[in-house]
Design a protein around this nucleic acid. Structure first.
Ligand code: MN
Ligand code: MN
Ligand code: MN
Ligand code: MN
Lengths: 149, 149
DNA sequence: GCATTAATATAGCAATTGCTATGTTAGGAC
DNA sequence: GTCCTAACATAGCAATTGCTATATTAATGC
């Protein structure tokens, strides 16, 4: 036999390696915005309104945390706050929400199609969704489609 | 036909929903520790030593950022710093590194097996790895195994 | 109409993760 | 042995994301 030690895959060049970490840090920064906008959209669709309190409850954070973040989203032009009437999405917010929601849906369906249980698929997809490139998303979509004819 | 509007999947209960976000936030906190420990292990294996400068170069952050994080990892008992000789892993650090490295390897192989290109697989796996449950990891592993006989 | 109260806003704080600027020093070339 | 320099340490700062405590106010039930 050649050797017993499993040959360690050599590290890729630093300039190549760094790309992945940079991209992941960028994704991480977008993550929270994406989750807020998606959740606001979901609440508007499902409950007819999106209140800070309900957002806080679902995200598992305190209400002032939500208030602060919504202020930022508003100043970024993604939502508008109608005092005591809840949060609404701008056109830009709606566009982001629908992209993000569809991506989330595909990731979760993909995990289900792979045989993952409902709970793990729900939990894992909440994190994975933000780190899936267009190329990977398309592969996930095709995989799901193939399983469902 | 029944109706044109695609029936919107109703939101899950808030108590269920919040689990995913909490888990994802926990994963996010562990993320940076995992990447550091894995990278230190890789550098030790590949280059024989792990220097702050090389860690910084690969992560794409400044050297003092690395210095601060290593101090934390040292106080957490994951690494030891031998001044001007680089970073080494404690037993606990080695254990974490090997778990994390294997998980990363499986996620990346899985994406490749799905048909994702080398670059996207490299980049996406750097983020996805931290959000994959044991159940999902096992499914990924089996999928790769099946493709490779 | 008004009082109640639930929703929201604000203040102040802490931890984390990044940065630049700059000081210190161990190792190695000579 | 000395000196140079690359490696590392430290100080000080900023942005982000969370918290608790508390003030304010719009909606609404009566
Ligand atoms: Mn989501
Ligand atoms: Mn998410
Ligand atoms: Mn990794
Ligand atoms: Mn990673």
């Amino acid at each position: 036999m050649a050797r017993k030690a499993k040959l360690p895959k050599p590290l890729v060049d630093p300039e190549i390696h760094v790309e992945s970490f940079r991209q992941t840090r960028n994704n991480r920064r977008a993550e929270i915005v994406e989750d807020y906008v998606e959740l606001v959209d979901d609440l508007l669709t499902d409950a007819g309104e999106a209140r800070q309190i309900d957002i806080a409850k679902r995200l598992g954070v305190a209400q002032p945390t939500v208030a602060k973040m919504l202020k930022r989203l508003a100043s970024d032009g993604l939502v508008v706050q109608r005092p005591y009437r809840g949060i609404f999405l701008t056109e830009e917010g709606k566009a982001l929400a629908s992209r993000v929601r569809e991506r989330h849906r595909i990731v979760e369906s993909f995990l289900r199609a792979l045989g993952i249980g409902e709970e793990s698929a729900r939990i894992d997809s909440e994190g994975i969704e933000h780190h899936v490139s267009d190329e990977t998303l398309e592969a996930f979509r095709k995989f799901v489609e193939a399983r469902n004819q």
